[in-house]
Computed example of a mutant assay.
Amino acid sequence: MIQIVVPIFNAFEVTHKNLQSLIKHNYDDDILFINDGSTDQRIVNLLENLPAHWEVLHNADNIGFVKTANIGLKHSVGHSVLLNSDTVVSSHWLDRFKLAINTIERLGTATPWSNNAEICSLPKTLSQNPIPTDIDQLSSELMNHLPQYPELPTAVGFCMLVTQQAKEQVGYFDETTFGMGYGEENDYSLRVAKHGLRNVLVDNCYVAHVGNQSFKEKSSKPDQGTMQRLLDKHPEYLNLIQKFIENDPLSELRESIIGKISAF
């Protein structure tokens, strides 16, 4: 069982596109939307017109992404996919996560490729690439790629599977340390690894990501304080990430996929 959890704060236009893509590709799936005290009445109206079998929760006040995400993660005893409201999902994306769950032992978190996903970005890593014109065609072409599920030092929070096993062994995001957001998925991924579970890339899956829409409205952004909070808990984090970036272990995989995808 996988529940898709979509935290929402304003950002009406991208949220509307996100909902349209979910209606197109995941109408029959279990989805929970959590409105984190949006001040834009259009969000409330939008959530009143969803398919009846989807669930909606409303926070009375804006409590921030981390606490809202934890509400969603705790809402289901099974697996959860945290999906940002500024994403657009592609055909069969959730099936690729299900395949990963059934294939990988001791899976903790999983992240798909995206145009804008830091170390999981395609075609250029660590970049905000343009969103391809037809991501469903891209996803169809990715079906021909045999997934390798390479190890990641950290999940990327725009679209992040958290398995039932991770919830049971690791728990949830650190609300006290990471407040309104930024750094929580890095901390969680490192805790996952320390519990002997895996953080992987689902390398036959693609979800488009606009990026930083809800936080932009609150003028929230990562800063030195964000990094220091993370380093206080995990002093090894910077060296781990720097080594991953320098070695670029996804390079050959990216090039192989890029060569097969017409959008690139």
Rank of each mutant, 00 (worst) to 15 (best):
V5W: 09
P7D: 08
P7N: 08
F9P: 03
A11N: 15
V14P: 09
S21H: 08
D28Y: 07
D29M: 07
D30C: 08
G37T: 08
T39M: 11
D40P: 03
D40V: 02
V44C: 13
V44G: 14
L47N: 05
E48Q: 13
L50V: 15
A52Q: 09
E55G: 00
F65Q: 10
K67E: 13
A69V: 06
A69G: 02
A69R: 06
G72I: 01
G78T: 11
S80C: 15
V81K: 08
N84C: 01
N84E: 13
T87F: 08
T87R: 11
H92C: 12
W93L: 10
W93P: 13
W93G: 11
F97E: 05
T103L: 07
T103V: 05
G108V: 06
A110W: 06
P112V: 03
E118V: 01
L126Y: 13
L126E: 08
S127V: 02
P132A: 01
D134L: 08
L138C: 09
L138R: 06
S140C: 10
S140L: 13
E141G: 00
E141I: 00
N144K: 12
H145L: 11
L146E: 14
L146Y: 03
Q148A: 05
Y149Q: 06
T154L: 11
A166L: 04
E168G: 02
V170L: 04
V170G: 05
G171T: 02
Y172H: 09
E175W: 05
F178T: 02
M180D: 07
Y182E: 04
N186S: 14
D187S: 15
D187H: 14
L190P: 06
A193S: 14
N199D: 13
N199E: 10
V207I: 13
A208C: 00
V210P: 00
G211V: 00
G211L: 00
Q213P: 07
S214D: 06
S214N: 05
F215C: 04
E217K: 01
K218M: 12
S220E: 14
S220R: 10
K221C: 10
P235A: 04
E236A: 05
Y237W: 14
I245R: 12
D248C: 09
P249E: 11
L253Q: 13
L253H: 09
S256D: 15
I257P: 06
G259Q: 07
K260L: 12
I261G: 01
A263G: 02
